[in-house]
Amino acid sequence: MKIEETRNEHAYIVKITGKVDTASYRYFENTMLDVLETEKNVLLDCTDMTYISSAGIRVFLMVLKTLQSKNGQLKLCGIRNDTKEIFEISGVSKLFEIYTTQLEAYTNFD
């Protein structure tokens, strides 16, 4: 798994590449804990995220909960069909705002 962070005028963008599984989720979790200390508007770019299991989904839920508690916003973009199916199976897909592209997600930040 690789994580790339970018800030622009709309949001703090975290781009995930590869697999977020039981073996790799801690790195993702630690990155997000750092990001959450300072950021309120976060976009998780999942275009190149090839796989996720419940360990990774738990981190997505943690990010959502933390941002909601400080009136921030979380948006997701580019989720591939098979990984989206895992969110659906997990019963959590409706909790997230999911967009096709980064650009589409930006225009929906308040």
Binding site: S54, A55, I57, R58, I86, I89, S90, G91, V92
Partner: peptide, 11 residues
């Protein structure tokens, strides 16, 4: 209140 173990079993 969600726990990852519970989500895992559901999966």
């Amino acid at each position: 209140e969600k726990e990852s173990g519970g989500i895992g079993i559901h999966i």
